[in-house]
Write a protein that binds this DNA or RNA. Structure first.
Lengths: 109, 109
DNA sequence: TTCGCTGTTCGTCGAACATCGAACAATACC
DNA sequence: GGTATTGTTCGATGTTCGACGAACAGCGAA
């Protein structure tokens, strides 16, 4: 993968965002990114195979929720919080704020 | 159907709510109910078969988003807005507020 | 009771999804 | 160059989802 593709902010779809957040694993990842930090894949611990994690990261990216940066053989993600905030004000922060007990299978290594 | 079953407020699950809202038809229904009104199903116009609408109404009910009242052969539905607000503060209202252009296939008759 | 209306349930279909392991590509390091 | 590391992609598999029509159940009215 040379560069990851991301949808432009004004094309992010509400149902797609909601569907992406409706999975405990993905919600757990988003919760970890909620502080605005950038994380490497290797930091993410989830009880799934790496190919499955890769799939989930793609769903989040395609939905416009995260931005992936490739550096050598490593990948880093962060929330597209500003863009999401201007596209759907309050949405992602509200979901995260209510996700205290969800996605706890995903932790930092 | 004698009585519809509804989950207690404290058992409403965030992923399930998000999944229920991630469908344009269901989001359209919720948008129509956003003003707090109670609607009969006969008032709902959507480009799907009645059995499919029945299915969607069940998903919304099972997720704890709506409450169904049966009166004779008719059913009426309304948002469980107060309960949702105390369980997931701001969640549903934020989603509805961002759903301006979604679910427009669902209208009042 | 016999229609007619309303909504549920059932069986079914194809599409989409989550998951895995294996194979692959790209880069970093020796 | 060769090897290890990292993440993607590719089937394959089983599950869930959205959709439909048909059949069913409950109630009201003629």
């Amino acid at each position: 993968m040379k560069t990851a593709v991301h949808p432009p902010a004004d094309q992010i779809s509400l149902p797609q965002v909601l569907a992406a957040l409706a999975d405990p694993i993905r919600l757990g990842v988003v919760r970890l990114l909620a502080d605005g930090s950038e994380r490497g894949w290797n930091e993410l611990r989830a009880p799934i195979a790496k190919s499955t994690l890769s799939h989930h990261m793609r769903v989040l990216r395609d939905a416009g929720i995260t931005r992936t940066r490739v550096e050598g053989t490593r990948c880093f993600v962060r929330l597209r919080d500003k863009e999401l905030e201007s596209r759907f004000p309050g949405l992602v922060s509200t979901v995260i704020g209510n996700a205290e007990d969800v996605g706890t299978d995903v932790t930092l290594r």
